[in-house]
Design a protein around this nucleic acid. Sequence first.
DNA 1: AAAGAGCGCACAATTCTCCT
DNA 2: AGGAGAATTGTGCGCTCTTT
Length: 345
Amino acid sequence: MATIADVAREAGVSKATVSSVFSKKRPISAEVTERVYAVAKRLGYYPNHIAVSLSLKKTMIIGLQMSVTNAGEWPAFNAEMVSGVIQVCAESGYRVLLDTLPENSDRTTMTMDPVDGVILLNPAQEDKRLDRFRQMNIPAVVIGRPNPSSTPACYVDNNNEEMMFRLGLSLLAQGHRQVLFLNAAANMTVAQDRYEGLRAAYRSQGLDFPITHHFHYDWHKHPTADEYGYQTIADTAGLLPYTVVITDQMHIAIGVMRAARELGISIPEQLSLVALGDDAILAQEVSPSLTAVDLQPRQLGAEAARMLLDLIQRAGEPRHRLVDTAFVVRESCSLPNPNSGGKKG
DNA sequence: AAAGAGCGCACAATTCTCCT
DNA sequence: AGGAGAATTGTGCGCTCTTT
């Protein structure tokens, strides 16, 4: 493997000159530049990324921390969100390192990762990751709302509370007074926000949202999202009164549909169904097609990346940004005034 | 004799000062 | 314009010395 020293020796110049030829940070004559390039080509020399990072104290790499479930599920939301991050990073010459290792509390396994900043997904109520990156002095942006009681952090999120309030009102306008809500895991801040929004909608109409109709995903109980949806319907159908089910994500809704089919419950005639998070291909592949709320994951990713790159260049006060959501009305649930506050239909 | 602590160096590139 | 030499960066290795 050729190094800068080999090229310098062969080209009859100093290491500093070779460095300047490649980085273009100092003007070098055309003749010397040509000579250096020719030698580099002959020796197969390319600047070593690790050595450059070591010297510049930056890696031009962004870490993207997102856990993969036990079942190895990769929802469309993740793919879209990652696309948004990659696009913005690429425009600024940054690469993206996808870190899917599960978070773990063993300090001996923790390393200072070779990244200039990180984007974290799915913040939990008690999320230690933010404190750790702060200790390491690595800028971080969260997608989702970090716990407000912890140290202030930069984040990009949907306005989940407002979204659920709007969805709740729309469902009430359709006559749905009994909702079954299959929420995310209890320790996720997003789960709390969405529940609060839904409750507020029902309270605003003088109704109470019964605790019996609110469920949390628990991976100890359900190996997959689909199973969570399936099992919850199987356990509650006929026992709890509800006319509509809201699921935290589309794969849960797929499980709900499977259970409904087996129980002879027709969608949407006897039971309406709305998924939070839209996978357009999957939603239109099933029958009936699934009504969903588009969380605009690509935009979430892009905004998070922009915020992080800005933070890397010039540190500043913690900031946040909210990304709009939009109802995508299909067959599984009709909603009035679908695009109020949103963009896409 | 084994284990542990501590030191110095190599790695590859950048960047600085001083010099021609 | 560009060369020489040194400092710098974090990690891992090899070595010596000390402790158990």
